[in-house]
């Protein structure tokens, strides 16, 4: 008997809450923001968490010429030979269906065919297994009952996430892979504990405009950004807004500068 989608959503949120802050990436966080590699470590740890919560996951392994667009990779693309993620049997109107828990690719549980379809190979090989299979394609690592190998893999890819976050590209996500949504005036990045001011000019002074900022670099645990707004009347018709943003953390933070025109 499958679980409800609501329960699947709760379990997704449970594992997703372990997302690593890119620059600090301390154990036991899960480096979802490094999609390039390490999926089998992430999947085994997610299964451990799900089982500790009282539910029984399985795993789905996919092989093929896999190419996935990702804004968490500076090239905007990840290329894999295989990939793995936990699954849960979810009760739907058409019977129990496998849903995949993969915060590296999605923001919620998705049907298995959706997860497979996004990976770019029209004819991949899909292999379901139980949660006990740590690595399906390398026999010495088939099992990891003590999670020692899992912790080694997670440690390796936490380090990779840190190294990438410290590079010139900064932490994920990468602006070259993103488009500015409606109401987003600019993308910015702040160094740890830094304060910086941006300005945006040419706004009609008759408009009532409200400015906010939103971090795009996930880092749960505390406030990341604060901001203040000042205004300058540049001419009879136009104004300039000055937005001062402060990074409240010891990590680099990327963010959106947002506006809303209220009248």
């Amino acid at each position: 008997m499958g679980i409800s989608f609501q329960r699947a959503r709760e379990l997704f949120d449970l594992v997703n809450s372990k997302v690593c802050c890119p620059s600090s990436a301390n154990a036991p966080c899960i480096p979802f923001l490094y999609p390039d590699d390490g999926c089998w470590g992430r999947a085994h740890e997610m299964c451990r968490l799900i089982m500790a919560a009282g539910d029984l996951p399985r795993k789905i392994w996919i092989q093929g010429n896999l190419r996935v667009a990702s804004s968490n990779q500076p090239t905007c693309l990840v290329q894999w030979s295989w990939h793995v993620a936990p699954t849960l049997q979810v009760s739907t109107w058409s019977g129990d269906q496998p849903y995949v828990i993969d915060p590296a690719l999605f923001q919620e549980p998705v049907p298995q065919h959706v997860w497979a379809g996004i990976q770019g190979d029209p004819a991949p090989t899909l292999t379901p297994t139980g949660p006990e299979i740590f690595h399906l394609f390398y026999a010495p690592d088939t099992y990891d009952p003590t999670y020692a190998k899992t912790n080694t893999v997670l440690n390796t890819y936490r380090n990779e996430l840190k190294l990438r976050a410290a590079s010139g590209d900064g932490p994920p996500p990468y602006f070259s892979c993103m488009s500015r949504g409606r109401g987003v005036q600019w993308f910015g990045m702040l160094e740890p504990n830094a304060t910086r001011r941006w300005f945006t000019w040419g706004w009609p002074a008759s408009w009532h405009v409200f400015w906010t900022v939103m971090p795009v670099t996930p880092c749960p645990g505390g406030p990341q950004l604060a901001w203040r707004v000042a205004a300058e009347r540049a001419s009879a018709s136009d104004c300039t807004y000055w937005v001062t943003v402060t990074n409240l953390t010891g990590d680099r933070v990327k963010f959106e500068g947002r506006y809303n025109v209220l009248n």
Partner: peptide, 15 residues
């Protein structure tokens, strides 16, 4: 005292 050195140091200490 700052990134990237501070982050590199944490990785080097770990390894």
């Amino acid at each position: 005292s700052a990134s990237p050195g501070s982050v590199w140091a944490s990785v080097l200490r770990n390894l």
